[in-house]
Write a protein that binds this DNA or RNA. Structure first.
Lengths: 123, 123
DNA sequence: CCTTGACTTAGAGTGCACTCTAAGTTGTAT
DNA sequence: ATACAACTTAGAGTGCACTCTAAGTCAAGG
């Protein structure tokens, strides 16, 4: 019992616009979306999962170019698993660095806020 | 014994380009940079600290518009401390949210990597 | 019949934050 | 003297990731 989605439903579910969904297809991030008799896209829940994964990669700052590379590998099938894994490991490291950086900046912010609080007490 | 920097030295120290340093002045993020007799900028270590703080705000995703607002308040002096503090508290919350989000995505990445590892073992 | 919601290609426009160029000036260093 | 490193204004260009428009087609539902 498979569930299918129209492009509009996908837009609503993912938060991407229909434009972006077509754009992602155009640039090869998403491929082989099933079509109804009338040519309308029929996204499967599998497609949804893939798009949501893409969204996470974007949200963690992966450039479109790299995502295209990743998608290309994915669509080549299981033989590229090692390469994809390697890409994700590299990306994970970047994500970790980013988190570290932001935590450092967070501390700076907290210090600044504390500094402002102390200033207030003095006057 | 004050230390002064030329724009070139500032560029090197901060990692910003000279263009960007002038641009930040143009849009009001940085003001009242001292000048030598010949009109050349003389950045003080105080200026450096301010610019480095601005860079941290940028690095943590604060839009230029908000930074302009913050800078404006700063240049209005101590009477705006409360407002600046409030801005930083709001920003801190965003930074925290962002860190949480990225940590969530990090876990997703780790799971995916593990999934790939398991796939490999099966073949 | 006509509105709705898809679809197509190709290309233009947007917003952000720079980044650079042009075309000139001025003062210091070799 | 000449090269160098600044400086100015004003505006153009860049790169990214969308976002939208034009101008048309097509098929089902009320």
């Amino acid at each position: 019992m498979k569930k299918y989605f129209t492009i509009q439903q996908m837009a609503k579910t993912t938060g991407l616009t229909e434009y972006t969904l077509r754009y992602y297809e155009r640039i090869g991030l998403v491929k082989f979306i099933a079509r109804k008799d009338n040519g309308h896209r029929q996204y499967s829940s599998n497609d949804l999962q893939w798009i949501e994964f893409l969204m996470r990669l974007r949200a963690t700052g992966m450039p479109i170019r790299d995502m295209q590379r990743f998608a290309e590998l994915r669509y080549q099938g299981d033989k590229t698993v090692a390469k994809r894994k390697a890409m994700l490991i590299v990306h994970l490291e970047k994500v970790q660095q980013h988190i570290n950086e932001w935590m450092k900046y967070k501390r700076v912010l907290i210090q600044k806020i504390e500094y402002y609080s102390n200033l207030k007490q003095k006057r």
